[in-house]
Structures are given as structure tokens and as C-alpha cells.
């Protein structure tokens, strides 16, 4: 009795305290914000600064305004890299998310034998470092002792050529799908679990079958999760680096130094010492990624409100 009245009293006291400019929250937020400023904001500002200068063979570093940006927009290598990751994104992300969605719906259907085993087994690849995933698949793809070589021997012809120019994007897409399918499945599954069960009961009373329930209740309930997963997958695709950079060792002629925008920025910096230009590429990619992520989110939430 008394405790509830104290609580009520305290609640009433809160607005008054708010007016007195309450700085206590800062004690909690300040350490994060300090490191955040040093590790996120400072590099961004520094990169913007770098992108406005150019190092010249003679005469040191000079201010060039937006010239680096103009150069990036006219750079065929940059466009080729951007086109490649865009193609990758348009094909790989829908396939991966469709697979994840199928697996999540199957888990949620309560019609599986050993659902807990399936859940953890499919998630397992997420825990494998991208480097190790690329190494394993690189070996499997290889014609020295890979499974691919075994299959080709069996068929008596070179049917599978994962490192050919036509197949390489698919080969990388397969690795990325393998790594993140289970993670996205869990995100979807977690979102499905919070759908109130009385909605299903109502649907059942109305005579809705399993498929109808999936398309009319479950998938609409997943919209938020799908938008989030899409955004993270887009960011991941634009940042593609680990897998192609490791497969480059096995397939140096097909994977160029500007295979993805990120590899391009990396090689500009550490092979070419063109730090100013590399920073410009990084900023342009950052802006493109942020804009696309924002548009996806906007579209996703607009459809939700209809």
C-alpha cells in the first residue's frame, strides 16, 4: 500500500526534476560518447578533410576542392566495382533472405521433428569467421583437392568451374549466403515468436489454412524484421571485402584489385599510397550506402502504415 503511494509520488516528482536540467544521464552516456567521437566522428571528419586535398609528386599536398570527387565519378574502375557489388546485391540478397524466411517459417510451423537441432545447426556458420569460411569454400572450390574436382572427375568433364569469370560472383554469393542464412533465419524466427497466438486461433476459426496463415499473418508480421535484414544485407554487400580478397589468392586473374569498391579503396591506400583518393572513394561509398539504407527503411515503414 505505502510502497505504491511512494511510487505514485515519485512519478509525480519526475517532471519537476526534468525541468531542473537533469544531467545525471550524461554520467552513463559520456564514456560511450567520448570513444564514439574519437573512433567514429573523428575518422569521418578526417576522411572528409583528406578528400579535399591531393598529394603531388612535386610541391607536397595541395587543396583541390571537389576535384577528387569529380575524379571518382569519372573513374571507370570505381563504376565497374560498384556495378559488380550492385549486381551481387540484387541477386544474392533476395535469394538468401528467401531461404532464411523459408527456414524460419518451417521452424515456426511446429511441424518439424527436432526443431531445436535444426535451429542451432543452420545458425552455426554465422559463428565461423568470414576468413575461415572463405578458406573452407576456397578449398572446396579448388581443383587440387576440392569437392569440385571430385564432382568434375565423376562427371568426366569440367562442369563446375567456381573460379571462372562467369561463376566467381556466384561462388562468392554462395559463401556469403552460407555465412548469414542462419543468422537472418533467427532474426525472422524471433520476430515470428512474438506474434500473439490468439491471432492464429482467430484465423483458424475463420478456416484459414496453413498457407493462408503464412501469407496473410506471418509474412506481414515480419515486415519490420525483413526491412532490417535487408538493410544490413545491403550494407554488407557494399562492404564486400573478406571473401573476394581471400579468393583472390586462388584466382588472381579473375578477381582484380578493384573487384569491389572496398578492395579498390584498400589497394589504392596500401598498394598505391593514394590516401586522399582512397578516402574519397570510401566517403562516396559511405554516402551511397547510407542513402540506399535510408530509402529502404522509408519504403518499408511507409508500406507498414498503409
Amino acid at each position: 500500500m505505502t510502497s505504491t503511494s511512494i511510487v505514485r509520488l515519485a512519478q509525480r516528482a519526475t517532471p519537476a526534476r526534468r525541468n531542473r536540467r537533469d544531467w545525471r544521464g550524461w554520467a552513463f552516456v559520456a564514456p560511450f560518447m567520448l570513444v564514439f567521437l574519437a573512433m567514429i566522428i573523428a575518422p569521418v571528419v578526417y576522411a572528409i578533410g583528406l578528400s579535399l586535398f591531393r598529394e603531388q609528386l612535386f610541391g607536397g599536398t595541395v587543396f583541390v576542392g571537389l576535384n577528387n570527387y569529380l575524379a571518382v565519378f569519372q573513374d571507370a574502375k570505381f563504376w565497374q566495382a560498384l556495378g559488380r557489388v550492385t549486381l551481387f546485391l540484387v541477386v544474392q540478397v533476395p535469394i538468401m533472405l528467401a531461404l532464411s524466411l523459408t527456414a524460419a517459417l518451417a521452424l515456426d510451423s511446429a511441424r518439424l521433428h527436432g526443431a531445436a537441432f535444426f535451429r542451432i545447426a543452420i545458425f552455426l556458420p554465422y559463428a565461423v569467421p568470414g576468413v575461415v569460411a572463405a578458406l573452407i569454400w576456397g578449398f572446396i572450390y579448388g581443383d587440387q583437392f576440392g569437392l569440385t574436382a571430385g564432382i568434375n572427375d565423376l562427371l568426366g568433364a569440367h562442369v563446375l568451374e567456381p573460379f571462372s569469370a562467369q561463376a566467381i560472383l556466384g561462388s562468392i554469393g554462395n559463401i556469403v549466403t552460407w555465412e548469414f542464412m542462419g543468422y537472418n533465419m533467427l532474426i525472422f524466427y524471433a520476430a515470428l515468436r512474438v506474434v500473439p497466438s490468439d491471432i492464429y486461433e482467430a484465423a483458424e476459426i475463420d478456416g484459414a489454412g496453413a498457407m493462408r496463415t503464412v501469407f496473410s499473418i506471418k509474412i506481414p508480421a515480419l515486415r519490420g524484421a525483413i526491412v532490417i535484414a535487408t538493410i544490413f544485407s545491403i550494407i554488407g554487400s557494399f562492404q564486400l571485402f573478406n571473401e573476394p580478397n581471400l579468393l583472390k589468392i586462388l584466382s588472381p586473374n579473375v578477381i582484380t584489385s578493384y573487384f569491389t569498391p572496398n578492395m579498390y579503396a584498400y589497394n589504392l591506400s596500401f598498394a598505391g599510397q593514394q590516401f586522399n583518393y582512397a578516402a574519397t572513394v570510401a566517403i562516396v561509398m559511405g554516402v551511397i550506402t547510407a542513402v540506399i539504407a535510408y530509402v529502404v527503411q522509408l519504403r518499408g515503414s511507409r508500406q507498414e502504415s498503409i
Binding site: 564514439f36 576522411a47 571485402f241 559511405g286 550506402t289 547510407a290
Partner: peptide, 27 residues
């Protein structure tokens, strides 16, 4: 907690989620 500048903190952090981690690596 409610504190002065909370909205700015939100905006900055949400904006930063969209910044690709690897874009920061070189700078």
C-alpha cells in the same frame, strides 16, 4: 534518463549505424 542533448545523441548514433565500418578503416 532525460538529459539535455539526448536527442542529438540519438541522431548522431543512428546516423553512425549506417556508416559502413570499412569506410572508416582507411582514415
Amino acid at each position: 534518463f532525460t538529459f539535455p542533448g539526448k536527442r542529438a545523441v540519438f541522431a548522431v548514433i543512428l546516423g553512425a549505424i549506417a556508416v559502413p565500418g570499412t569506410a572508416l578503416a582507411v582514415p
